[in-house]
């Protein structure tokens, strides 16, 4: 009996957006007279940071401070249609809709500012800090708030914009499968080291190292949050999580978090990652989607590492201690 170490790797790609498209999202952007901009839509923040990411995208496209962009989402009486938060689609689909809406609003904003400053709108730039000024002449300026006030009270205009993103549906040919399934692909490659106790079948994951390529990152801290959380979920999927431990039997279904086993904090190794940025032309400022793919490379990397450590060929998940001990028994029996 021993503790054996092994290394495994896996490389994956992941499509952005609903398979075959046909999944539109709209966004509306308007300036209030308080100096804020409001992005209105109906997408759902599950904790991944949609409200943050869309505010960043809107602020970038409008040329205004991040803090002045409010994201108002989650009410179908006020927010236009969103197909939903799934399929790694929200940064891409809602992000594109927000860019379109923000650009339309920005155009009006600059036209209003131009009239106030008595210059040509094409010659104006935003400083991203709340002011609009003449290119090359920063002293010729007006604040975004003053421009919004002038639009309403002086010029009678709404500083607003409408956006939608739709990748038209591409049906799959029933015979050949020919289709245009996705907008772009993100990529990941994960390397995992494990140590397996051949007496107990317990697996310790010693390290998880991943490279990701997700187009332009919108928020690197949130991207890292997805990568670390996904690595943990991948460990759980690979080693312990199931509602049917003796699948296909339906017995032993868990009722609670004692029966449904997820890794604890103590079992979590450090997660190292590098993120490459290859902006995609289809995405908002080049962004792809990362939300879903983050468990996909860790799972096979963990199992490949276990097989590498033990010299066995386990092909099912979760790889529980029981699965490991049975594989070791089989290996011993075939050697005998």
């Amino acid at each position: 009996m021993a503790k054996l170490r092994g290394t495994g790797m896996a490389a994956v790609n992941y499509p952005t957006g609903m398979h075959l498209g046909g999944d539109p999202t709209q966004a509306l952007v308007h300036a209030t007279t308080t100096g804020n901009f409001v992005v209105t839509l109906s997408s759902v923040d599950l904790g991944q940071g949609l409200k943050t990411v869309l505010a960043q995208i809107a602020a970038e496209a409008l040329g205004v401070p991040f803090e002045t962009v409010l994201v108002d989402t989650g009410d179908t009486d006020t927010g236009p249609h969103c197909t939903g938060t799934f399929a790694s689609r929200t940064t891409h689909r809602a992000g594109n809709a927000v860019v379109m809406a923000a650009r339309e609003a920005r155009k009006v904003l600059l036209e209003v500012a131009a009239e106030e400053l008595e210059v040509n709108a094409d010659d104006l730039v935003t400083d991203g800090e709340g002011s609009i000024h003449l290119a090359g002449a920063p002293e010729m300026k007006i604040s975004v708030t003053d421009a919004a006030l002038a639009a309403h009270f002086v010029q009678g205009k709404t500083v607003s914009g409408r956006g939608v993103y739709l990748k038209p549906m591409s049906p799959m040919d029933p015979e050949t499968g020919e289709c245009d399934p996705d907008s772009t692909h993100a990529h990941a490659c994960t390397v995992v080291e494990v140590e397996v106790d051949t007496e107990t079948g317990a697996v310790a994951v010693l390290s998880i190292k991943s490279a990701y390529e997700i187009g332009q990152q919108v928020n690197p801290a949130l991207v890292r949050g997805q990568i670390v959380g996904g690595a943990w979920m991948g460990m759980g999927h690979a080693l312990s999580e199931t509602t049917a431990p003796y699948y296909p039997a339906i017995d032993h279904a868990p009722r609670d978090f004692l029966g449904y086993v997820m890794p604890g904090a103590a079992e979590m190794p450090e997660v190292e990652c590098v993120v490459l940025e290859h902006p995609t032309e289809t995405g908002p400022f080049g962004a792809k989607g990362i939300g879903e793919m983050v468990a996909n490379s860790p799972i096979p990397a963990v199992v490949n590492a276990i097989n590498n450590a033990l010299g066995v060929r386990i092909t099912e998940i979760p790889v529980t201690p029981e699965v490991i001990l049975r594989a070791l028994d089989e290996k011993a029996a075939s050697a005998a």
């Binding site: 949050g225 670390v228 690595a231 979590m268």
Partner: peptide, 11 residues
């Protein structure tokens, strides 16, 4: 329990 973060940022 936390299902999102993988615990490292919490620690």
């Amino acid at each position: 329990l936390c299902r999102c973060t993988g615990y490292l940022p919490i620690i």
